[in-house]
Design a protein around this nucleic acid. Structure first.
Lengths: 339, 339
DNA sequence: CTGAAAGCGCTTACAG
DNA sequence: CTGAAAGCGCTTACAG
């Protein structure tokens, strides 16, 4: 099957532009880079010729020669959770605005996949990586990526003792605030719903415990319902919590999707959130504004977190050897009808 | 600030491997490509040397020379809508499994951004593009991208008269089924909520109208509430619909997030979906299984749609000049408590 | 301010 | 089965 010649023109190179503008290819290259070394006249002539011919810059060739690149790898553990989708949108928005391009991958909590995509990104010579690691990622991963010479920003889930750039939120303080609020509203028995493992879980559970302690309330293991951090997990956990005696009348949730699942379980039982039982989520995803009823939550502004993460990494690219960078979102209570 | 030499080793090339294995660099290259031209012995020796040295393949250099690449551009109009997030996850899963890498961008319905990222992807020499175009994208965009020599798959929103690869769903049939179902359940006055423009909107509205007509019901403009295809749009539209007289008792929604917003509005009015008013969504996003109450919807399996889209594009890469490829998801009713 | 030359790290005919 | 050479499309010293 021969292609019609018109459909397969040899792609234009700077040599073609050089000929058309009657200069050398070095000059074209300099013009394309906006170098001040070239006179305004020459520059304009070259630019015009390039436009006329329909020349397309070959970033690959340039990157190879320059040993640089403008692609950033973003690897997310669970994009099905709207929280991460919103974070990703924030990251991508910032990256694109700064002239970078986003190489994205969803690992779905698989360590194997994570390793695979990280390797792939390395081969592609990404300029930097933003990683929200799968659960149980060993802290040495940080050192490994660093040994590759690729700047890394760890997102949300911290890995070991620090020594790396990080963007996340103050999880302990978030659940502390949420719990304290519910206690102050007169709930003596407040449950904790969902989540099972990982630093984020540990911190959020700790904040809950601290608040109970601070307000002189005994902790009751029956009120802490470990469950998958999903809608279904939240749904099932709430149903379990309802069996506790004496009954709980409110619950702090590991995150918003768990809280949404809990809302569904309440509805299933004919209970109305905010009247019969109080629920508070964590993250501040968009969905919470129009759930039934609208969900109170600990807002850490997912989109802002994503943008901050991207900014930090870009900052790191500018200053490869400055001190550790970090962003910790300050949680704030977003009170709606579910409490 | 001098870097310690150990931290900045000159990156290894096939030349280093060649020297270590005592062969020429062509041989190394062939081994790396798994060529059958090389003896098992030599091949093993080279592979061992590469591993020992910690050699990393430079895909960029290879791609430049080979004029190929394994990056696919995916541009989505609204990643904040879980439907598209789920589609993206499906696409990425398939692409990664096939050894490709995903260059992703969210245009947020901005034509300017769309143009910018498309240009950027072109410079990066992506092997193909999956595009869910922003509203009002002119059909000539298809021709333009094709003139770049980059295989394009149009996602969800068709553009003009065809002549391109496409993955989407049978929107007209979807709303037809939904409307018919509600009518059969004894709702003489069924509303249509949300959406404002675009082919998808037109088709879904048409399906609704067809079903009314088919079942001898008059169409009432007061029951069709145009609104932004968002939770808030659905919320506001339902509140409007409630004012209609005689009252509607059920509504087909443009998509699931509109339906979720409608559910919130119902709750706000003290109404219970499925008892006082029936709501049916469209898409089949995960959220619907645990909304309050769980939402009936027209399921087009977003994840499956994403995978199909990726498969089609990969197929196209194998066969550049075969006939037009397309996938149209067959909608099925997923009945839950909201109806 | 501009041009000739070398080189980024690969692949691919072409000999042998 | 293996090696020497040219080339992918750029950038970057280096002369002039």
């Amino acid at each position: 099957m021969r292609k019609p010649p018109a459909n397969a023109p040899r792609p234009l190179t700077i040599m073609d532009v050089a000929r058309a503008a009657d200069v050398s290819k070095s000059t074209v290259s300099l013009v394309l880079q906006g170098s001040p070394l070239i006179s305004e006249q020459t520059s304009a002539r070259v630019r015009k010729a390039a436009a006329r011919l329909g020349y397309v810059y070959n970033r690959r060739a340039a990157d190879l020669r320059r040993k640089s690149g403008n692609a950033i790898g973003v690897v997310i553990n669970d994009l099905m959770n709207p929280f991460f989708a919103e974070v990703l949108v924030g990251i991508e928005r910032k990256l694109t605005a700064a002239g970078y391009i986003t190489l994205m991958s969803n690992t779905n909590e698989s360590a194997d996949l994570q390793e695979k995509v990280l390797r792939s990104m390395r081969e592609h010579h990404v300029a930097g990586i933003i990683l929200c690691p799968v659960l149980d990622t060993p802290p040495r991963l940080v050192k490994q990526v660093r040994s590759w010479g690729i700047p890394l920003l760890v997102l949300v889930r911290s890995l070991g003792m620090g020594g790396y750039d990080y963007a996340g939120s103050d999880n302990e303080r978030g659940t502390y605030l949420a719990t304290e609020y519910l206690v102050a509203r007169g709930h003596p028995r407040v449950g904790f719903l969902g989540g099972q493992t990982g630093v984020v879980f540990d911190d959020r559970l700790r904040g809950y415990r601290q608040a109970l302690k601070k307000h002189g309330l005994a902790e009751d293991a029956a009120l802490i319902r470990i469950a998958k951090p999903s809608r279904q997990g939240g749904h099932d956990a709430l149903l379990d919590l309802l069996k506790a005696a004496p009954p709980a009348t409110a619950a702090v949730c590991y995150n918003d999707i768990v809280a949404l699942g809990a809302l569904a379980a309440l509805g299933e039982r004919g209970l109305i959130a905010g009247r019969d039982f109080s629920i508070i989520g964590f993250d501040g995803i968009l969905d919470t504004a129009y759930s039934n009823p609208p969900l109170s939550t600990v807002d850490i502004r997912p989109g802002g977190l994503g943008e901050a993460a991207a900014s930090l990494l870009l900052e790191r690219l500018q200053h490869p050897s400055s001190g550790r960078l970090s962003y910790v979102a300050e949680p704030s209570l977003l009170l709606r009808q579910s409490t």
